[in-house]
Simulated assay, not measured.
Amino acid sequence: MTETPQVTGRHRELLDQVLDKWSLHVLDRLCEGPLRFNGLRRAIPVVTQKSLTAALRRLERNGMVERVVVSTRPVAVEYRITPLGKTLQDLIDALLLWTADNLPDVERARARFDDASAVAGGE
């Protein structure tokens, strides 16, 4: 049995960058196939251009995504998942499935907590 590694600052930094608000969406979309920037914007309509650019740069720096210049007229840029990024697909799918399966329980827990906090705060 493999021992669980200690979570260091370096681990936390990587997890923060891979699991941040937009990176998870980008990785999920690119696991389905390559997309151009505007294709990603359409696939994730609530992301701003600035946030998407920052997420793509972080993921490219970490080796999860590659930026490929496509020789067309006009020249276009396409983003693709790398083999390293592809290793996250099952984990991302599991997280999204867990969220869908457990969201009702989480919402009930939040409501109970909020109700109890309101009562305690009113005393």
Score class of each variant (00 low, 15 high):
residue 33 G to I: 14
residue 84 L to E: 12
residue 105 D to M: 13
residue 48 T to S: 15
residue 93 D to S: 10
residue 39 G to F: 04
residue 26 V to R: 03
residue 95 L to I: 15
residue 59 L to P: 01
residue 90 D to K: 10
residue 24 L to E: 06
residue 60 E to P: 00
residue 25 H to D: 11
residue 92 I to M: 01
residue 64 M to E: 14
residue 113 F to P: 00
residue 18 V to L: 15
residue 42 R to G: 07
residue 4 T to D: 12
residue 104 P to V: 06
residue 91 L to D: 07
residue 3 E to Y: 04
residue 101 D to G: 04
residue 34 P to I: 09
residue 66 E to N: 09
residue 38 N to M: 13
residue 13 E to D: 12
residue 111 A to H: 08
residue 20 D to I: 07
residue 106 V to A: 08
residue 76 A to S: 13
residue 95 L to D: 02
residue 75 V to Q: 07
residue 80 R to S: 07
residue 32 E to I: 13
residue 22 W to R: 08
residue 6 Q to D: 13
residue 56 L to S: 03
residue 115 D to Q: 11
residue 71 S to C: 07
residue 70 V to R: 07
residue 30 L to E: 02
residue 14 L to C: 06
residue 5 P to V: 04
residue 38 N to R: 12
residue 25 H to K: 15
residue 49 Q to P: 01
residue 77 V to W: 01
residue 73 R to A: 15
residue 91 L to I: 05
residue 22 W to F: 14
residue 71 S to A: 15
residue 10 R to V: 15
residue 82 T to P: 03
residue 52 L to W: 03
residue 59 L to Q: 03
residue 122 G to L: 12
residue 99 T to P: 00
residue 5 P to G: 05
residue 49 Q to V: 15
residue 113 F to Y: 11
residue 6 Q to K: 10
residue 84 L to P: 00
residue 24 L to C: 04
residue 13 E to A: 14
residue 66 E to C: 10
residue 68 V to W: 00
residue 53 T to C: 09
residue 20 D to N: 10
residue 56 L to H: 03
residue 53 T to I: 10
residue 38 N to D: 11
residue 48 T to P: 01
residue 56 L to M: 04
residue 47 V to E: 02
residue 49 Q to D: 14
residue 70 V to F: 03
residue 121 G to A: 14
residue 9 G to K: 12
residue 110 R to V: 15
residue 71 S to W: 07
residue 54 A to C: 07
residue 34 P to M: 10
residue 22 W to E: 09
residue 17 Q to P: 00
residue 102 N to F: 07
residue 7 V to H: 00
residue 12 R to V: 05
residue 114 D to L: 15
residue 95 L to Y: 05
residue 66 E to T: 14
residue 73 R to D: 12
residue 102 N to I: 10
residue 98 W to R: 06
residue 36 R to G: 15
residue 116 A to I: 05
residue 111 A to K: 12
residue 99 T to C: 09
residue 42 R to N: 09
residue 45 P to T: 09
residue 96 L to Y: 03
residue 30 L to N: 02
residue 5 P to R: 08
residue 78 E to M: 11
residue 13 E to R: 14
residue 6 Q to I: 15
residue 15 L to C: 10
residue 91 L to T: 12
residue 59 L to H: 02
residue 30 L to Y: 02
residue 47 V to M: 03
residue 114 D to E: 15
residue 25 H to N: 14
residue 29 R to H: 04
residue 31 C to L: 14
residue 107 E to P: 00
residue 87 T to K: 06
residue 91 L to M: 05
residue 3 E to P: 01
residue 5 P to F: 04
residue 102 N to C: 07
residue 104 P to D: 05
residue 119 V to I: 15
